[in-house]
């Protein structure tokens, strides 16, 4: 039975190595470890335009990522974009007059939500809403306005 025993060991080693490979992919390569198992709370904000924002785009304060966008939908009455964000529970001291803006990381980078805390003493709670927002800057629009202005000045 010696032969069979080594075979068992090798098969065991193979299965263990395969599962280790899959675990490596799950924990080291994907975002499974970063957010899903941490406690978080949800806040939302209405933007006039959320631009190229996507689900899982980062939410940051002063450049530090504190959460991610969990859903984007359209408010059928105001035609505004409702961006729902899940924020790490460790950062539960955002004032309720926080400003939310959609920015682009670099010229070609992805878009993210930047929160700028205000001075209020009361904090945003779970399912809270950010009232002051600044829409995404659409590059074509900005260039269009600039050209239009330049043409006006020439006259």
């Amino acid at each position: 039975m010696q032969h069979s025993n080594t075979q068992d060991t090798l098969v065991g080693l193979f299965v263990a190595a395969g599962i280790a490979g899959l675990f490596f992919l799950a924990l080291q390569v994907s975002n499974l470890s970063s957010f899903s198992n941490k406690a978080s709370y949800t806040i939302s904000a209405n933007f006039a335009n959320s631009g190229g924002l996507k689900v899982r785009s980062p939410v940051s304060v002063a450049g530090v990522k504190i959460g991610q966008v969990s859903a984007i939908s359209l408010d059928p009455k105001s035609y505004q974009s409702v961006v729902t964000m899940s924020i790490d529970a460790a950062y539960n001291q955002l004032p309720d007059d926080t400003t939310a803006s959609v920015f682009t990381a670099g010229l070609l980078g992805e878009q993210y939500v930047s929160l700028e805390p205000g001075g209020s003493d009361t904090f945003l709670k779970d399912n809270g809403k950010i009232d002051i927002t600044q829409p995404a800057i659409i590059l074509e629009k900005a260039i269009g306005q600039f050209l239009f202005k330049a043409a006006e000045e020439k006259k």
Binding site: F14, A17, G18, I19, G21, L22
Partner: peptide, 10 residues
Amino acid sequence: PLLAGLFSAI
């Protein structure tokens, strides 16, 4: 799947 996982990881 085990082999494919190993392939990707390596």
